[in-house]
Design a protein around this nucleic acid. Structure first.
Lengths: 342, 342
DNA sequence: CTGTTAGCGCATTCAG
DNA sequence: CTGAATGCGCTAACAG
């Protein structure tokens, strides 16, 4: 770690100027083949590697994008991170990971840090922060892509686009899957009351009921925390007050797994006594017994698209704000009956 | 994004030199309270933020550590990442995430990139790469901490320490849990043949058998890929050739979940017909039915310790190579009988 | 307490 | 095809 080799070291060795070395490093072809090769050899010999820091200072580009997530240990976000990483590396970018530990105020700090590091752009997944706080926090950043948060700013803002999953359609599809099979009353374990996704899926739930000519029964809707435990507790409550309920649409797969636990505790058979539809299709959905019928959201793809959107913008600032809405897809497995009669 | 505010902007505004501003920013207290406050105000007004890039170039420190993982979507590694992030942020470091997509050769590229970015140190989790390739790849880096790979280099190397889980003890504990309950034949779904963890757990398995005076029966050992599918297939094989086997120690929880599937397919009751012990205690282990008895490895803690080790070294190069061996812990749940008769 | 002078390692004019 | 000069934004000795 003493003194690293620099460009001038290799320039001196080669008996040329810094400029010439710089040219061969940056693939400029205004260099004679012989000197080029000589320089390349010396670089190889000395194991020289250009300093990204120095280069960044000179070019005003870092080749790094920031990724802000609420919790990297959550499969949704690690899936997104994987997608982001895949595209970023393919496009020669690095990714600076910011885990907010589910604390919204940390999103502010993280955006600050990313600004200090002069990242070229930022991807923020499912910000928990109020828009009022989020907007000024993004002010310093020129290029921001949001995942799972719609953001249509009338004013000029730093948000160049967002990637969301169509929760409304997802909620509708999931509910319809149950309705199509002849159930007329569909319970809904709706997840966190304040959640944006919950609201949208609820709209889809209502639509599906409406189109099927079924009434919306408020007593069949139960909010819950989006976890296995939340699903277990909420399903106990819901089934106690509605013992004859025969099917349930769950906010996500974890909630659905909680329902599975309840069923096993209550001696209910799935799907015969209770049909269950989950949401997200996390890997685990196909590992439990019975395997979960669910509505797939491709998180990795969301990460990929957000990153591609960002990088396209960075390399070719032409296209304005661009939004991507991914369509979820029903995955038929064993926790609900197969496709309806039709 | 036009022209960012720089130190000289605020120096000019304040009518002082760059140096004075620099002093204020870096908390040096050789500045009069009045000028300090004046400068602070101007910084606040203009929303000035020092460039981490320029600072890094001048100080030769980036305040960034690199984290290399085989697959960030794998719960083991996202757990580690969480631990790394937690400590890094607390110590004012950022973390550059490198996902190798399970391709060992990418570890080389990633270490290269991290070197180009001039990170202050690197944490490499569970390198898949051969030692012969890994060592030269780490050569450029001054400070490397390894997770889940022992590395005792006789020569001076860039590895300042490693953090591993004691797989030998883990394997022994898991096996003993079964043995203590009176089983005399314990099957072992051993995971990937080449895996270091597999070898160590095997040693523990043998020891436990030895101490209990039981023979090691090669026909009860079956290698498998460390996945649900791998566990399902391997357990089918093992149970076909050993129909009377009553208990199984699994390489990890995913494998154990695969065994659960097999049991459900074969109509075997767990733990009555077949007792199962997993490994790792991933969250899922307590979500399946029956809940998995398993050997807990605290991944997040491994990440935390590795990071603390690295940062301690960075800030105070005194202490030499230091290694940490974490002890796993048996978690008694429902997939195996309770504590033995004793 | 404050300012001057040099770099950090590289890229980018503009000339030869 | 090649080189000299200048600056990216900040820190680190040295002086005053």
């Amino acid at each position: 770690m003493t003194n690293r080799i620099t460009m001038s070291d290799i320039a001196r060795q080669a008996g040329v100027s810094l400029m010439t070395v710089s040219r061969v490093i940056n693939q400029k072809d205004d260099v004679s083949p012989e000197t080029r090769q000589r320089i390349l050899d010396i670089i190889e010999d000395l194991g020289y590697r250009p300093s990204g820091i120095a280069r960044s200072l000179a070019t005003q580009r870092t080749g790094t994008i920031g990724l802000v997530v609420p919790d990297i240990a959550n499969p949704y976000f690690s899936g997104i991170a994987q997608g982001v990483a895949e595209i970023a590396y393919a496009e020669d970018f690095s990714v600076l990971l910011c885990d907010c530990d589910e604390r919204p105020e940390r999103e502010l700090e993280m955006l600050q840090v990313l600004d200090d590091k002069r990242v070229d752009g930022v991807i923020v997944a499912a910000p928990r922060l109020d828009t009022q706080l989020l907007v000024p926090a993004m002010a310093n950043h020129a290029n921001v892509v949001l995942i799972n948060r719609r953001f249509d700013d009338p004013l000029q803002s730093s948000v160049i686009g967002y990637v969301v999953s169509d929760d409304e359609t997802g909620g509708k599809l999931a509910t319809k899957t149950l309705l199509d099979h002849g159930y007329s009353r569909v319970g809904f374990l709706a997840g966190p009351r304040a959640s944006y996704g919950s609201m949208r899926r609820m709209v889809g739930y209502e639509q599906a009921l409406g189109e099927a000519g079924k009434p919306l029964l408020p007593e069949l809707i139960q909010y819950c925390s989006p976890t296995v435990k939340g699903g277990r507790e909420a399903s106990h409550l819901l089934l106690e007050s509605n013992p004859d309920l025969r099917c349930l649409f769950c906010f996500n797969d974890l909630v659905a797994i909680g329902v599975l636990q309840t069923c096993s505790e209550l001696g209910l058979r799935v799907p015969d006594d209770l049909a269950i539809v989950g949401y997200d299709d996390i890997p685990m959905a196909s590992w439990v017994q019975p395997q979960l019928t669910t509505c797939r959201v491709d998180f990795e793809k969301m990460g990929r698209q957000a990153t591609q959107l960002l990088i396209n913008y960075l390399e070719n600032c032409s296209e304005g704000c661009q939004n991507i809405i991914l369509q979820p897809e029903i995955i038929l497995r064993a926790s609900a009956p197969g496709p309806g009669p039709l």
